[in-house]
Design a protein around this nucleic acid. Structure first.
Lengths: 72, 72
DNA sequence: ATATAATGTAATATATATGTTACATTTATG
DNA sequence: CATAAATGTAACATATATATTACATTATAT
């Protein structure tokens, strides 16, 4: 589950911990999502978007192709 | 968790069951998501997007405001 | 008006996201 | 180099998404 959270996060000058706190989740959860090892809930995706000022498409969109190539 | 799945689905002439099948999920899951009673996973959101030819933002985006007004 | 398909929804079971704790590794900073 | 901060990751616990089964209600068609 690839995504662009890390780029958005560091460009906001946030640490995983800080993002986690703002979003109300654990640092580990952020870490695993950034690493593409988690399949986050829509709710969490939205909260991350709000915190780093991005939209769902900007952070999480994947074309069918890249989708199928990933592990899922 | 409001969304625009139903509109997209019927405009594709799909029943909940058909969408569910295409997406590999249960009809009940689709029903509950449409009704805003579920917090679907990103993976499922993407699969729905692909099936109804919409993007994440088109189907699932919510501004912070509407967000806070919802139950969550 | 009656049958049939589509949808809402509840109860219980299962799978999986997330929390907690803990430690290892990497990256920054003195 | 040394120390601290940031990040990766594992084991187990808990919360919650989704499946399953089943039935009720609403829409559609005959």
């Amino acid at each position: 589950m690839k995504n662009k959270i890390k780029i958005a996060r560091v460009s906001m000058d946030l640490t995983q911990q800080q993002l986690a706190d703002k979003v109300g989740v654990t640092r580990q959860t952020i870490s695993l999502i950034e690493k593409g090892k988690y399949n986050p809930s829509l709710k969490l995706c939205l909260q991350i978007c709000y915190t780093v000022n991005k939209t769902l498409d900007e952070l999480f969109w994947l074309e069918r192709e890249e989708w199928r190539n990933g592990k899922n």
